[in-house]
Amino acid sequence: MTDKTIQHPPSTTGRPIIEVIGMHKWYGDFHVLADINLKVQEKERIVICGPSGSGKSTLIRCINRLEEHQRGQIIVDGIELTNDIKNIEKVRAEVGMVFQHFNLFPHLTIIENLALGPIWVRKTPKKKAEETAMMYLEKVKIAEQAKKYPGQLSGGQQQRVAIARSLCMSPRVMLFDEPTSALDPEMIKEVLDVMIDLAEEGMTMLVVSHEMGFAKRVADRVLFMDEGQIVEENNPHDFFDNPQHERTRLFLSQIL
């Protein structure tokens, strides 16, 4: 695949990197996700939106098994997620995750946060891991903070570090769980800029977000979820200008 520009849709041939087939999930008696079917091709960028409680975070948390699903299949990079812990760890090493609240490790410096995964999971030598870490810190424009602790950084800086931490594992897919929702308005842009750069480099991304500007600019597909189901799925142009479902229209009218 040589396609690097944003406008061209990624190829739909070949094996999808993420495949969700007829997946259901319950919290106790509550049916959170119902019959989810989703195929994600390599280098595809998907934005998932929907009202709160619609199950969008739960969906992407199922993809790296932070949540268990009860029925259906989830196959990531050819590995089906089951109770097999070794398989789960393998999948998690290939799937980066960025959280709403950053979840940096407060007892480690920034550079140690970044090098932890490569050193212990990938068995990279410490020196090499730290070099890679510095490279990614430069990429998210925060290299001068390498020796500081997360508590000394602003929210936007912490979230950029969190993105760099995931990138250090050279993941094949990146999941973003509302990465800008906990940030002050002036810090949202610095995080989105990093994410846009990433998209332009061809990273496969699943982003739960209400940043519609971001969705319009980088998404190949936008999914709208409501009450645990994927209600509408379309390219951003049609999704925003010509939504098919009443619920999508209502949602868009409230947030735009």
Binding site: A93, V95, S166
Partner: peptide
């Protein structure tokens, strides 16, 4: 809980997550 999840999502196994992330804190 986010600390456990962040450690898990990096692919650390139980003992690594405990030794490197959870127990030190």
């Amino acid at each position: 809980k986010g600390q456990y999840e962040a450690a898990d999502s990096l692919g650390l196994n139980y003992s690594q997550a405990m030794r490197k992330v959870i127990l030190p804190q």
